[in-house]
Design a protein around this nucleic acid. Structure first.
Length: 776
DNA sequence: TGAAACGTCAGG
DNA sequence: CCTGACGTTTCA
């Protein structure tokens, strides 16, 4: 929040805040808010308000009309009291206003008139995040210090004066620089914890910080390695691991916790870090890592292997991980590894340790880590996104009931055959408790029927499922948080070489090559050099992010996800919390596919309050606690009882592919679905034991949209479904696949009869036993 | 601690 | 001058 912006929070916060609380109620604000801005004023002056860049994806977006702030707007029928911009439109790179001038020469920024990068920098206005002064770097007289450019925010740095005076440290906790409103509200350490470390890129300071706080290590890095995600494989059904004492629920957004664990992890690597630091100091001179020092902070995404294989992975702070990951052949000098990112003095509030790394230069200089977004790409992407939203809305507005083709994400949907970490065999799940859901053995719940073995039907098998992660108790609204910058394909068009020349191959060509790499390989590439690091983070390379069965979702991962802006995100069988999910969804406006199978309802309920306008595929199979009541919450239009709010559209109205396998839902939910999901073309109701012929009747009843839109339905292992259901499917105009495998009450004869009767209009065949498929 | 409110800045 | 919305305070 605003507090995060005020440079002298320590005093302000601790004292006056409490005092105020005691003196409450205060006389109505009014004068106070406008006139009194002491907390914002530092010795050096007032901070300039920032304004939209008008270029970023967010700025180019249209108002969503759905968020709190939109609803408040007069134009959307609200009272207009909140006066905030649409959450989907929160500028990711707010700029200084045009009226801003250098305090020294009183002139505006002149970088546009210059060609040379160095000149540009010297003549651009830079606002100090500590003293708020706006100057041209070249107008500064200080010669014995360097500024630290905040990479996250245009025209923002810690000026040499402040940096030199060591002021940086004190603001470390709160300040990210002006423009980042609500920053301090970010869940968990996304900004408060992790960002500082990241932006400063300063392990040393982190280490110092850490050493300042006495702590007994409780969290051991190895711990995370021991924790295994739910492990299943078709051949070896999951067995519960013996008690897993390690599975201590991490409150991912609990600052203390995270903070601590992070510290622990850092601590464990201390010697490594300090050694590293030395290397970096020299490394830096040659070519400071720019951008968001991506690699160094990259979350360690565990992921199952899919098309791209292992995704994502750069270590988090676990350096041992890193070493494991690094292909020995590709290992590079430490200084050039991602660690150097960690230590490159990054943006932002910086830090004791970091500042010393920059002592050099005869005039005010800064480690140049400016954000140089590829505007064109960014613009293109936002345009596309906007168009898509518009298109969707139009389509719905027109009530086009044509079955919509499912997006080709389906390739992703093939049953997982591989599980990361490779040690699943015989491993027992850490957090299993003996429990059956919906009368179906846990182990069966992980598979589509194609993987079901007759064995699997032994219902008496003791079963268990993951303990649903505890979510933060209260519903958290994260909408006011700044949306982190989406990845922008970074600038250098060619790879700079040592001799000052550039490599002959252009970035786009490299990108074509990178396309062939797995996410894991990409992460390795990200460690090769700064340029590759930036290129490899291009969101085109990360359209699908798979964290399936990754038991611990850390804030680092979350920010890594946001940065990559995937279209498809698989968080199945993770212990993501509601807060995290909500935070994520709000920052992934372009998300098309969201997989949450096996998560807890507590987490999934984040969907009730967050909006994902482009979501096409929603997978909530085996979500514990997801029943009719919860479905109602999920499918209910956003609650808003203010007058003028008549948006009764369901948040999930654009979903085309809905997976509800293993849920205890009844016709009540189905009725809602038929009403609220006009585009539904694929529906998975397998293992839903309450589903019966009447349910099928509902789905295919006259007047429902599903009747025409439904193309694929999975009713396998729905034991109440009988032959009679097949008659209902005859009235579905678009039906292409009916999966009735393992439905005890469905006979092969009935299927054959169905095929015969349909043959006149739509030729079907039996692809497998009781699996009907259109032939053409 | 997060949400709401609101004065006033910035841009058109 | 109007509108949008930033940055801050106040409230629950």
């Amino acid at each position: 929040m605003a507090l995060s912006l005020s440079g002298d929070d320590e005093e302000y916060d601790s004292e006056s805040e409490q005092q105020r609380a005691a003196n409450r109620p205060k006389p109505k604000m009014g004068t106070s808010s406008a006139v009194k801005l002491p907390s914002n004023r530092t010795a050096s002056g007032a901070r300039r308000r920032r304004t939209r860049c008008r270029k970023c994806e967010a700025c180019l977006r249209t108002e969503c009309g759905e968020c709190h702030f939109c609803k408040d707007m007069k134009k959307f029928g609200g009272p207009g009291r909140m006066k905030q911009s649409c959450i989907m439109r929160q500028c990711i790179a707010p700029v200084l206003p045009h009226t801003a001038v250098c305090v020294v020469c009183k002139e505006a920024g002149k970088e546009d008139t210059l060609e040379d990068e160095e000149d540009k920098f010297n003549f651009m206005l830079m606002e100090c995040s500590i003293c708020n002064e706006i100057v041209h770097p070249k107008c500064l007289k200080v010669t014995d210090a360097t500024g630290v450019v905040n990479d996250e925010l245009p025209n923002c740095w810690e000026c040499p004066k402040c940096n030199h005076a060591g002021k940086s440290g004190k603001v470390l906790k709160q300040k990210r620089g002006p423009g980042f409103k609500y920053a301090s509200n970010l869940p968990g350490s996304l900004l408060r914890e992790q960002k500082p470390v990241k932006e400063e890129g300063d392990i040393a300071s982190a280490a110092k910080k850490r050493s300042d706080r006495e702590e007994t290590p409780r969290y051991r890095p190895e711990e995370s390695l021991h924790r295994q995600p739910p492990l299943v494989s078709p051949s070896s059904l999951p067995r519960p691991r013996p008690e897993d004492k390690l599975r201590k629920k991490r409150k991912l957004f609990d600052d203390e916790d995270e903070d601590e664990s992070q510290r622990k992890r850092e601590k464990s690597d201390d010697p490594y870090f300090s050694k590293l630091l030395n290397q970096i100091k020299t490394e830096e001179d040659e070519d400071a890592f720019d951008e968001e020092s991506e690699t160094g902070r990259e979350p360690h995404f565990h992921s199952s292997v899919e098309r791209k294989g292992h995704f994502g992975d750069i270590e988090e702070e676990d350096h041992k991980d890193k070493n494991d990951l690094l292909n020995p052949c590709i290992k590079m000098p430490v200084g050039d590894s991602d660690q150097s990112h960690c230590s490159s003095p990054q943006a932002g509030p910086s830090s004791e340790g970091g500042s010393e790394t920059q002592e050099k230069g005869l005039r005010p200089k800064a480690r140049r880590k400016r954000r140089l977004p590829n505007r064109e790409l960014s613009r293109e992407l936002s345009k596309a996104l906007n168009q898509e939203i518009q298109k969707t809305e139009d389509r719905l507005a027109n009530e086009n009931r044509q079955p919509v083709k499912v997006e080709p994400e389906t390739e992703n949907e093939e049953p997982k055959r591989f599980f990361h970490n490779g040690n699943e065999h015989g491993e027992q799940r850490p957090h299993l408790k003996p429990k059956e859901m919906n009368g179906t053995p846990w182990e069966l719940r992980h598979f589509y029927p194609s993987q079901i073995t007759p064995l699997g039907f032994n219902r008496s098998t003791p079963t268990s499922r993951p303990v649903p992660p505890r979510s933060p108790p209260k519903c958290v609204q994260m909408e006011r948080h700044v949306i982190r910058p989406p990845p922008i394909s970074p600038p250098p068009d060619r790879l700079p070489l040592k001799d000052g020349k550039t490599h002959i191959i252009q970035r786009e060509v490299w990108m074509k090559i990178f396309c062939y790499l797995t996410h894991q390989e990409l992460c390795v590439c990200m460690r090769v050099c700064k340029t590759w690091n930036r290129w490899c983070c291009d969101k085109r390379l990360w359209t699908k992010i798979d964290l399936n069965r990754c038991t611990s979702i850390t804030p680092l991962m979350l920010s890594g996800i946001i940065r990559r802006q995937p279209l498809s995100l698989d968080l199945s069988w993770t212990n993501i919390s509601k807060k995290q999910l909500s935070w994520l969804i709000n920052r992934l406006p372009g998300l098309r596919v969201l997989k949450l199978s096996g998560c807890s309802w507590a987490a999934v309920s984040a969907l009730c309050t967050s909006s994902c306008p482009l979501l096409r595929t929603l997978d909530v199979q085996w979500v514990e606690g997801l029943k009719d009541t919860q479905m109602r919450d999920l499918l209910s239009p956003p609650a808003d009882n203010r007058p003028g709010q008549l948006d009764n559209r369901c948040r999930l109205r654009n979903v085309e592919d809905l997976r509800l396998a293993g849920l205890d839902i009844t016709d009540i939910s189905l009725r809602l679905i038929t009403r609220q999901m006009p585009s539904l073309s694929r529906l998975d109701l397998s293992y839903c034991n309450h589903i019966n012929d009447q349910s099928v009747n509902l789905l295919t009843a006259a007047g429902t949209t599903t009747r025409d839109s439904l193309a694929e339905i999975n009713l396998s292992v729905c034991n109440r479904v009988t032959d009679h259901s097949l008659n209902f499917f005859k009235r579905c105009g678009s039906i292409c696949q009916i999966d009735l495998r393992f439905c005890k009450q469905v006979t092969k004869t009935a299927c054959e009869r169905f095929i015969a009767e349909m043959s006149v209009s739509v030729p079907f065949k039996l692809k497998e036993d009781k699996l009907l498929q259109k032939t053409s």
